[in-house]
Write a protein that binds this DNA or RNA. Structure first.
Length: 154
DNA sequence: GCCAACGTTGGC
DNA sequence: GCCAACGTTGGC
């Protein structure tokens, strides 16, 4: 069992968009960074915990708790010739990009990045490090526990 | 909108 | 295999 922080731009898919999806589930397509891909392909498992993070928006922060509900499989968008995620170097036989399915567990009151930065317990979180741009980062179990047990309002 | 940081590309 | 140029990310 691992824990992850996954960024989504709310203009693309917000926590409310996710809540409105069938089964409150979304395929995490469009990842085109090898490190982030490898996390999904090599390390994610069904049941892993996910912090659903709103990035590149007016109020960045953790907007929901979610979970991984599939192992990784080829990202369908890499084969769609007209789409923005098309990858001419990918083939059905040798797909290059993968994604998992993520299901919302619950929407939470937004925990802003500003608040996250206030807690020494979270000082080492990958997402808070200077220059970090990875859209998927692993969380320490202690960080997950602190956020889900101490920061999430009931 | 700015810009620092980072990843990728491609010429050599 | 180096590295400059370029494109993207994402907080501010």
């Amino acid at each position: 069992m691992r824990y992850w922080l996954m960024k989504s731009e709310p203009s693309d898919c917000s926590v409310d968009d996710l809540a409105a999806m069938p089964e409150q589930t979304v395929a995490w397509y469009g990842v085109r960074n090898y490190q982030a891909r490898n996390f999904m392909r090599d390390q994610m498992n069904v049941g892993d915990g996910v912090l659903f993070y709103h990035s590149n928006c007016k109020e960045p922060g953790i907007a929901g708790i979610a979970r991984v509900i599939s192992i990784a499989y080829p990202d369908a968008t890499q084969f769609k010739r007209t789409g923005k995620y098309f990858d001419p170097k990918a083939t059905q036989e040798q797909p290059r990009w993968f994604n998992v399915d993520v299901q919302l567990v619950k929407k939470i009151q937004l925990i802003t990045i500003k608040e996250l930065r206030l807690h020494p317990e979270l000082a080492r979180m990958r997402t808070l490090q200077r220059g970090n741009r990875l859209s998927i980062t692993p969380l320490d179990p202690a960080e997950w526990k602190f956020i889900t047990q101490k920061l999430v309002q009931n």
